[in-house]
Design a binder for these strands. Structure first.
Length: 545
RNA sequence: GCGGGCGUAGCUCAAUGGUAGAGCGUCAGCCUUCCAAGCUGAAUGUUGUCGGUUCGAGUCCGAUCGCCCGCUCCA
């Protein structure tokens, strides 16, 4: 971490304008609205040239640090190197996967809307009360939210007022909203927050999964499948395959990155809530007794990782979930935490960047029951000792700690964090990307477009591309004034510009211009590569520190 | 999904119901020895889309799409 990151400017995030950031993203080719020439499509975004490379750099950093190095190359709480292996599973799976995971059931909650109060309720949480001798047909029913005493008392008052003397406290009946023939009773039901009947819409299922059809002649009923709403299940259903083929031993993790799809009710806030998005997930499997240790380990390290790529300061927090917001799979576990970032549109609040959850053995247990496959792990290091002194082994379903990060949200956070406005500079808008993440790694300019300078610039450009091209763009530009070229690189977030001037022609030196300070430093042209290698955090054969 | 606001060039904005424009940016050429300099020239619009009213619609009406804000939703 160096002064070249934007951490120093973190406290200004509340004053950053999302409009300015979005305008820059479009102007410089980071992010475009999907299908823009057709009027756009709500909830989908395309990445332009710089955005695509920025996103790839973030994904690569995650892949290298989390997966290949194993949580950054440190020892886990068990005192051993952390073992993670990747998979790349399909977006479309057997629909039974989503039945087992709870998505088909959980995502299909019917909802009712109230046309008058403009509120929406989960239909299975709404009950109605009515009064009258048993067997009579109640002409009016009063809805309330189950478990909400205020709502219930409100409905009771409305019923008493309506019935007046006809109110019979001994003959109050209750029923679930879902049990009605809606067409017959809709006009008799008074919504929870209104006084007149007939304002509730019929219960409608809101399926957040994208349905699709398998087979060229398939029809939606018989051959229905879903685009995955999360990448996690692709890992769980391959758990046995990985264990059987890879010589991994618990504890270990399986990781993958990839697209997931959700029919969000309200896509909003730029790319923050999109209907198509990319996840970076690890499912870390361990013995049930070790979950707390690994949960704490991942929470700590994932925070450090986000800080290492340029997020940090007051804009990044780790927030432990309250008991009542835990997901169905996390009720019994050590807990769930969110790593949250203070986006300009959430400030002074925060928005989720990554969730770290103890999923217990929920998913493996579900898939074991639904598929009939034996998903227990046989752990030869546990169990009673046999006569020969070796453990007899223990068979169990591993528990899972899941660090699940949003790649698009990470990119968005980096864009917001990097965006800096400095009106004292001729080019006030600067994207202060961490050099490792920056899509353009360096630019080479001839100070003027003549006298042999362009040729030297081209030579240096090609050398740098040869060595660093796999990490990002190496730009070259000879057009217009040098100030304008620097300014363009500031907006694109290129951390270093190398300029060939008159002196370069005689002594083979160039000036390095730093994006964040504007300061210049002269260095030998043949040291530029090693300088960049040091700044980008890649191995260098030189002694440069 | 509901309510409100908005929609003219890449961006910021003009144009009384009567020939769609400016600045910036972009591109080309010249000039230029370190921070969006200057000169010359060029490209760019089915005025979000579709329909209606009108002799005539960027302008009035309707629908639709998209964006923003507030609800709602976020397993």
């Amino acid at each position: 971490m160096t002064a070249t990151t934007a951490a120093a400017d973190a406290s200004t995030n509340q004053t950053k304008s999302m409009d300015d950031i979005m305008a820059l993203c479009k102007r410089r080719g980071f992010i475009f609205q999907a299908s823009e020439i057709y009027g756009g499509i709500n909830g989908f975004w395309d990445y332009g040239p710089l955005g695509a490379q920025l996103k790839k750099n973030l994904r690569d950093a995650w892949w290298q640090d989390c997966v290949m190095k194993g949580a950054g190359g440190q020892l886990g709480p068990n005192g051993k190197p952390v073992s993670i292996v990747p998979v790349d599973s399909c977006i479309i799976q057997n629909p039974k996967v989503w039945e087992a995971s709870g998505h088909v059931g959980g995502f299909n909650d019917p909802m009712v809307d109230c046309r008058e109060s403009k509120r929406r309720y989960r239909a299975d949480h709404v009950r109605v009360m009515f009064s009258g001798a048993s067997g009579t047909d109640p002409q009016r029913m009063f809805a309330f939210i189950e478990g909400d005493d205020d709502s219930r008392n409100q409905a009771l008052k409305k019923m008493q007022k309506y019935l007046k003397d006809g109110y019979e406290p001994h003959n109050v009946g209750y029923s679930d909203l879902m049990s009605f023939d809606w067409s017959a009773f809709a006009e008799r039901i008074v919504g929870p927050d209104v006084a007149t009947p007939g304002t509730l819409t019929p219960p409608r299922a809101f399926n957040l999964m994208f349905p699709t059809v398998i087979g060229a002649t398939g029809d939606i009923e018989d051959d229905k499948a879903y685009l995955r709403p999360e990448t996690a299940q692709g890992i769980f259903i391959n758990f046995k395959n990985v264990v059987d083929s890879t010589r991994v031993a618990l504890p270990f993790g399986i990781a993958q990155t990839g697209k997931a799809f959700r029919n969000e009710v309200t896509p909003r806030n730029f790319t923050f809530r999109s209907r198509e998005f990319e996840q970076m997930e690890i499912e870390f499997f361990c013995h049930p007794s070790e979950t707390k240790d690994w949960y704490d380990f991942w929470k700590k390290w994932r925070m450090q990782w986000w800080e290492s790529i340029g997020l940090g300061g007051d804009n990044l927090i780790l927030r432990e979930h309250d008991a009542d917001e835990l997901a169905h799979y996390a009720k019994e576990g050590a807990g769930t935490s969110d790593i949250e970032y203070r986006f300009p549109f959430t400030a002074p609040g925060y928005g989720e960047l990554e969730g770290i959850a103890d999923r217990t053995d929920f998913d493996l247990k579900q898939h074991k029951e639904h598929s009939g496959a034996k998903l227990e792990y046989f752990d030869t290091t546990r169990g009673e000792l046999a006569k020969n002194g070796q453990p007899k082994g223990e068979r169990y379903l591993p528990h899972v700690i899941e660090p699940s990060a949003g790649l698009d949200r990470g990119v968005l956070a980096i864009l917001c964090e990097s965006y800096t406005k400095d009106d004292s500079r001729p080019s006030p808008e600067i994207m202060k990307f961490h050099p490792r993440i920056a899509p353009i790694k360096a630019a080479v300019f001839p100070l003027v477009n003549k006298d042999g300078m362009p040729e030297m610039a081209t030579k240096l450009t090609l050398e740098l591309r040869q060595r660093f091209g796999h990490l990002g763009f190496i730009e070259s530009d000879a057009k217009q004034s040098i100030g304008k070229r620097y300014a363009r690189m500031d907006e694109a977030g290129c951390p270093f510009c190398f300029t060939i001037d008159g002196e370069s022609l005689t002594d083979q030196t160039v000036t390095m211009r730093d994006r964040d300070t504007g300061a210049q430093e002269r260095m030998a042209m043949d040291k530029v590569g090693d300088f960049l290698a040091g700044k980008l955090g890649v191995d260098s054969s030189s002694s440069l520190g």
